[in-house]
Amino acid sequence: MKLPISTDTPKGFLISVLVIIALFTLSTLFFFYVYLPSYTNHGESITVPDLEGIHMDDIDDFLVKRNLRYEVNDSSYSEKYEPLTILKQYPKAGSKVKEGRKIFISINRVSPPTVPVPELVDRSLRNAEAVLKSNELNRGQITYKPSQFLNLVLEVSQNGEVLKPGDRINKGSVIDLVVGDGYGKSNFDAPDLVESDLENARFIILGSSLEIGLITVEGDTSNSKIIVTRQHPAAGEQVKIGDAIDLWISPEGYVGTEGDEEDEDI
């Protein structure tokens, strides 16, 4: 290219250099901000639609018609949606992406996975409900049955069929519970606590809706295994809910002598 300005003088040469720099700069700006964006559709984007809950049969209406692609990369289960509906997506709904972008989706399984029935019998109703929830099971109907133990789980069933711990059922199943009403027979046999350790005796007493009465210590109980040697009322005697059970405790193998007993409330 012949420049219209003479380059024979220093001034003319300088002007020629500046003209060349300006032309190069303009060409660069034109390439990056005019030609390249138009060639690559720069600035044009597509808003990713919300696919959650959409059935796979309808996916084309939400993606293909928007010039987007998709790929199933995972499957899980939710009782909230029908089988083969979309549970998750990436990129998330509302994201701006280029044409032809692949959307990764997770779909709901046709059959729910199974889980074992947890051990619920002899648990409190509140505890059983927590265990069911942690195992992704639902508590159904509660039926009360005469028992001196209020809200103690007595039986577990599904659709009228009694379940045993370990039986496989679908995740999300509804489990019915039979629990005690707390109004069983007013009198019942006192539990046998003799030769039980103290902690186990406490557990049995409280679990039987009884109270812990006076505890009498016999002998030196430090650094020894402590067991129940006597109780009142005795095992098998009639008691009612709320009655107190007095205990005599001593080191295992202790042989007492007259006059060495002392009473101590623990």
Rank of each mutant, 00 (worst) to 15 (best):
G166W: 02
V194R: 14
N159C: 07
S250F: 05
L3S: 10
L51C: 02
R230Y: 12
D243I: 14
N170S: 08
P37L: 03
R168L: 14
Y70V: 03
R101D: 02
Y77T: 03
G172R: 05
V162G: 09
P116Q: 05
D167A: 06
G213I: 08
N159Q: 09
G182A: 10
G100F: 06
I205M: 04
V121H: 02
V255S: 11
D60Q: 12
G53R: 08
Y35W: 03
L198A: 08
Y39A: 15
S45T: 13
V255T: 09
D220E: 04
G43Q: 06
G180L: 07
S38P: 03
G166M: 12
G172K: 11
F24V: 08
L193V: 14
V121W: 05
E195C: 04
F24I: 10
E129H: 11
D60P: 01
V156R: 01
V97E: 07
S134A: 15
T7C: 09
P251A: 04
E211M: 14
K185V: 11
E252L: 08
Q158L: 11
E264D: 03
L125A: 02
D192C: 07
K171R: 15
H42N: 11
G53V: 06
S209I: 02
L26W: 08
E44R: 14
V117F: 03
G253E: 09
N67T: 09
K240I: 12
A234G: 00
R101P: 00
I86R: 06
N200E: 14
Y39Q: 13
A234H: 07
S38L: 13
K133L: 12
L84P: 01
L214M: 15
Q238H: 08
Q158H: 10
V48I: 08
V97K: 00
Y183R: 13
I103Y: 02
I266V: 13
S111H: 14
V255Y: 07
I205H: 05
N151A: 13
G166C: 05
S147F: 01
E262W: 06
L84A: 09
N151L: 15
L51M: 13
G213Y: 05
F203A: 11
A22G: 06
M56I: 13
E155A: 13
Y77K: 10
N138I: 10
G100R: 07
S95Q: 09
G253M: 01
G12R: 06
S147E: 06
P113T: 02
V17M: 00
D265T: 14
I5F: 10
S75L: 14
D58C: 04
Y90W: 07
G100C: 03
T47V: 15
G43H: 09
P49N: 10
E237L: 11
S45N: 12
N200P: 04
S250A: 15
L120D: 04
N127P: 03
D181P: 01
F30Q: 05
I227T: 09
S186F: 10
M56S: 07
D60A: 12
K98G: 01
E252C: 04
T229P: 01
D58F: 13
L87E: 00
E211Q: 10
E119W: 11
F31H: 13
G242R: 00
L125P: 01
V131K: 05
N73F: 15
R69C: 00
I86F: 04
E44F: 11
I59N: 09
D167Q: 08
S208G: 03
